[in-house]
Design a protein around this nucleic acid. Sequence first.
RNA 1: GGAAGGGUGGCUGAGCGGUUGAAAGCACCAGUCUUGAAAACUGGCGAGGGUUUACGCCCUCCGUGGGUUCAAAUCCCACCUCUUCCGCCA
Length: 426
Amino acid sequence: MLDPKLIRTELSSVAEQLKKRNFELDVKALEDLENRRKQCQVETENLQNERNTKSKSIGKAKAAGENIQPLLDEVAGLGEKLDAAKAELADVQQQLDAILMGIPNLLHESVPVGKDEDDNVEIRRWGEPRSFDFEVKDHVALGENGELVSGLDFETASKLTGSRFVVMYGQMAKLHRALIQFMLDVHTREHGYTEVYVPYIVNSDSLRGTGQLPKFEEDLFCVDKEVGFYLIPTAEVPVTNIARGEILEASQLPLKLTSHTPCFRSEAGSYGKDTRGMIRQHQFEKVEMVQLVSADMAWQALEELTLHAEAILQKLKLPYRTIILCSGDVGFSSAKTYDIEVWLPGQQAYREISSCSCFTDFQARRMQARWRNPETGKPELLNTINGSGLAVGRTLVAILENYQQADGSVLIPDVLRPYMDGVEKL
RNA sequence: GGAAGGGUGGCUGAGCGGUUGAAAGCACCAGUCUUGAAAACUGGCGAGGGUUUACGCCCUCCGUGGGUUCAAAUCCCACCUCUUCCGCCA
């Protein structure tokens, strides 16, 4: 959520900036509500003040043994006036909050202006896509190899549950697990992150904190509507919310956390997209990196975290490119996002494998996640940064397709062999 | 699942329905003392919001949500959560 004060004082500027996102801010409605809010709030607080003062004098009079009836007569009816004022204020505030919660974050100045994903800008590229002297298969075809030994099985998964799930067997499942282990090891040993294990079910407060609610409920799987429990769409939610309602000490910063979790997404609205294979699943594994930092470190942290994600691809020797999302494509809560796209020979295309974002204080304000600045002694909002490091399912796909051999086998990248008991190929 | 007891400021921990936003201690900050530090002493020190050019003034907040009352941290109801004991169990 944006700073309400900023919206109040720089409304036209905010509206202007949001246009880059194709977001139309209803300036008139906001102004009207804001005026009403001010009026209601002042009125309500005055009434409260009156009630407090009079109640106190009643207390005093009573203690002094005086007759309090005249005073009681004075406050008669005050309660109802107060209740009415409160109700109106609550109503206005609620409308205001609803609008505020629906306003996306302001973009960083370095974000290129653009309409949609076609306007994203590539900023660097690493590795050469391999040239094949045989016809390349995609990961689905490669996964058909000897199912119970090392296969991917989509049919069984759809029997068990439905579309967009997968069953993995044998060495394939092990390779998948090896990737998780490998990523966590790199981030904890080389990049300075602390590993955390978190719940895979979160409450609606947490989802509001990171910005999935109230706007994007249809993307989530709800486990219990009654109590408001949802499966996490990303570890970002539980990990970032660790700081919700907390005031961290300066010595704890930057707080760098990494976590492996499954992720659950309903993928509503993606009918027909990536229906083949395991590119887009309802359930997938991801290793996530989260950094909680002071505002002055935020942009540096985003650059650093993005390189941490890229490091995994480099170690796996998978060609990729890094792009910066244009203003029309940046996610709701993010101020700036880099996507890392891995080369998939089966699709002859670069496909997203990581998304690294800086949310400035947008999430922190929603969840009141703060740190104490020793220079002022006052709590300040944290800045939150996160990114995938990496999406495990898609990394598996990338390995299968990039490391495939003419005979349909797949070589295991060097760095993963220690995790695979030395096995060199599938 | 049963029983009992808790949830109060950054932390620990008092709190009779009425000058309690909340004792005390710790931590923290400033000052005195000291060659310096520690100790001791003195003072300051919650968060969010509104309003004001500003000093300031005001409102809200004692797990959450309701209720009673002129007035609620304090009384009532519901819920959440933690601890201990019993039972069950991966």
